[in-house]
Design a protein around this nucleic acid. Sequence first.
RNA 1: CGGGGUGUCGUAUACCGGUAGUACGCCUGCUUUGGGAGCAGGUAGACGGAGUUCAAUUCUCCGCACCCCGACCA
Length: 414
Amino acid sequence: MRQSSLFTKTRREAPKDELAKNAQLLIRAGYVHKEMAGVYAYLPLGLKVVERIKEIVREEMEAVGAHELLMTSLQSKELWEKTDRWDDKNVDVWFKSELKNGSEVGFGWSHEEPITELMTEYLESYRDLPAFVYQFQTKLRNELRAKSGIMRGREFVMKDMYSYTRDEEAHLKFYNAAIQAYHNVFMRVGLGERTYLTFASGGAFTQFSHEFQTLCDAGEDIIYVHKEKRLAVNKEVLTPEVLAQLDIKREDLVEEKAVEVGNIFSFGDVKSQQLGLTYRDEEGNEKPVILGSYGIGITRLMGTIVEAFADEKGIVWPESVSPFAYHLVSLAGNDAEIAAFAEGLYEELTDAGKSVLYDDRDARAGEKFADADLIGIPWRIVIGKEALATGQVELVHRKTGEVTRVGRAELLQR
RNA sequence: CGGGGUGUCGUAUACCGGUAGUACGCCUGCUUUGGGAGCAGGUAGACGGAGUUCAAUUCUCCGCACCCCGACCA
């Protein structure tokens, strides 16, 4: 992409109403636009990051056998009444509206009910099980208080996956596969080292649910981390009984701030009973389907990545989620030869399938470097007089600042 | 939802009960060109409403918006 064609611009300063680092940097660099409190639009650069994160998640979900679908944002009141979650007294984040004919509808803050009801139409026999589905959906939640930039908004993108299995054994098998898939996701987006499987309270069906908590100063949660065993417990389950059960000692736990980037739940058959999701087994007996729910906050994950890796100059994207692999910075000025060199290299890299943001703007070096630092693409290629003279270009690593000089051929082979 | 705070050009800020200033941005021109350039000229602003006052951007009230702390958070 030619930067001259990008309508967004960088800003020196963050708006004064943004205190969260992730929002300050994402706005300054032109990734997002704040529409209202807790509601952000994703601009071209920001959308690329969202899509890259989604693609990683998609690959891992497909790898455990799940299929993608897309549910609706408008949801039916009658459906949610079946599980007693329509009433504002029970769910306090509903946005509700009504149709012209007067019937009430809700804006989806979760999709467990709709997807499960959908499944009643298709899952009838043990032969139809198991079934695993997921989607990327914009969730709408009327949070009392939005905060922390894109990390806790009223509108955000979430990956939610649901498992439908015939019994507890099949459920656990998938549940454990999902845990591994989640680990893979967080590893791939660069947060693996600092993300912990965290035991949380489980509700009626199982003792525990599991959260994936990423250590981060901007986090809203407090967790207790066992670094050696690479697990953590949520405050609500920090009891002597649980510690004994997990075979960990209180003194080995460190209190840390963290962001909940994912969570997984076992629902058992409660919701299936409520919504009438049953199947016939081999003997013709009608049995409830076992349900599991698995979420990853895609946009929250993006904010967490910014928070985790940014430095004083700006964003530092891991290669796996960066909007572009390379930031080609041309310092041509009025020098047509340098401009031609940069143009040629841009074409070559692009033709070779590399994703390149090409700073072809008529701007000075300082401004270009500052912008490149802010935007945070992992590798910067600098084209100046020296490149013309030697044929070698500067390759600068955003994260470390390390500079190496490489030839075109070497660059194309990376 | 309880508490606290803030609303001034596009952005960040200053001052002030009596002519709203600065920087960046943006526009024009010239110069400059490896770390947010220089000069000159230009563009653009008091959240909305009511009240107090000779006079309100400034004080008061209401509304709206935004931020922070808490509560909440499948």
